[in-house]
Structures are given as structure tokens and as C-alpha cells.
Amino acid sequence: MANDTDSRDKVQDSPQLPKIPIFIMGKRYMVPEELTIMKAMEYAGYQFIRGCGCRMGVCGACGTVYRKPGDYKIRVGLACQTVVEPEMYLTQLPFYPANRASYDLAGAQGSAEEIHAAYPEVFRCVSCNACTKICPAEVSVMDYIAAIKRGDLELASELSFECIQCGLCVSRCMAELPQYHIAQMARRFVGAKLTPKAGHLREQVRNIAEGRYKDLMDQLESASKDSLIELYKARQWEPAKEGEDWTPDDHRGLLS
């Protein structure tokens, strides 16, 4: 193994590590200067139950707000992605209450009006942009809310795609919207109702359900290991540069 050193997340302490002071919920700790907030808190002795998830910036568990002395700005970051800074004082917001409207997707049309009916408060938005400013995933929250108000669900879907549903937008909203739930409904409407379905998918589901591959698969399932290896080696490779319409010369394993 090339990387012999223990690569666990656990920080190896040493007196040589340059340390800086940070304030976790107001309390001062000295931590190594290159750590993320998450690893710094663990270094300080915290064991997370809440406030820690994927540790790679997509799950929304570790939203963190902080300020720095002499600076009025409220700052934000994911604890797992943000490197500590001297004198920062921080708190995690692992949960923020946000009401969600249940809906029957199968029975829905996929219209903006249905979203407006489920979340009438969407029109309370005054476009203050506090949501966008606090978003640690750099999603244009205010813009997707505006798109939903206008009825442009495709745009809302595109703008909100990188939302990690951490809830920090909800914490800052003067109109008291649950933005990320509204966006989720819009994206599902776009995916399920407003985007053309894949025809080839239905065709293949039908082929399989009708048992058209059954004999072929029975043979494969009971083949000897050696003959499987031969069949494996004989597979024709779809060239990477070929487009959608490529078809193989070798038709074994296919219908037709």
C-alpha cells in the first residue's frame, strides 16, 4: 500500500501542528489551523450525533453559521467543507423547522398552480435575497422562488438542482417559506410531468415482462464458469465515440 500512514479522519495530534483559536458556540478551543470545522470540533472532543452526515458536502447535515470579530457579516458554510479561521465563532444549525405539504404525485397535473395551492406563502416572498446569501451550496434560492411564482418550473428545477436541503434558507426567510420543500415539489413535477418519458424504457420493460429474454438468461444462469468467461471475452464493445444510434454487429444476446 502506497499511502502507509493511517488515513482515517481522526486527526493525529502533535505539538508541531500550528494551532489557532476558534469559538464553538462561544467557547474557545485551540485547533490545528488546516482542519475543516467538522474535524476541528472532533479534535476539540465533540462526538457528533447530529450535525454530521456525508462529510462531503451533499447531505445538508452540517450547515454552520459564523462570524468573525470586527465584521458585521454573517457567514455560512458546511462544517465538513469549510476550513477554520482564527477567532471565528460558530454554531451548527443541524435542524430547522420547515412545514411540508403532502401531495399525490400520481394524481397531480404538474402545474405551478398546484404548487401555489400547496404553498400559498410563496407569494409572501419580498425578494430580500437573504436565502441566496446564506445558501452554502450557492444556490440562487430567491431566483428559483421567483421562477415558481411566475410558473416557470423548468427554470426553478434547474436553479435548485444543487440544493442540499440543509434548511439554512428557511432560517433566514422573513416570509417564513420552506423553500427547499417547495423546490422539491417543483423538481418532481418537472421530472414526472413536464419531461418526455423514455420510450425505450417501456419497450424493454415489456420485453422482459413478456419473457423474451428468459431462455437466454436461463442458459447464462446455468452455464459453466468457463463458458461464461468465453462469452465475457467475446462481448463486442460499444465504442466510446459512437453516438446514440450505434448497433452491434454481433446480435447474440439481443432480440431481433
Binding site: A198, H200, L201, E203, Q204, V205, N207, I208, Y213, L216, M217, L220, L228, I229, L231, Y232, R235, E238, D245, W246, T247, P248, R252, G253, L254, L255, S256
Partner: peptide, 19 residues
Amino acid sequence: ACDKAQKDSPYYHFLDVLG
């Protein structure tokens, strides 16, 4: 998922998985 029948099938997906 092997859902493009003109070029793919459970046969090829199965062989890939086994290999």
C-alpha cells in the same frame, strides 16, 4: 440498466456484472 434494446439486454449486463 440495460434499457436500450437495439444494443443492450440483460444478457450483456449480466455478463458485465459477473466479469
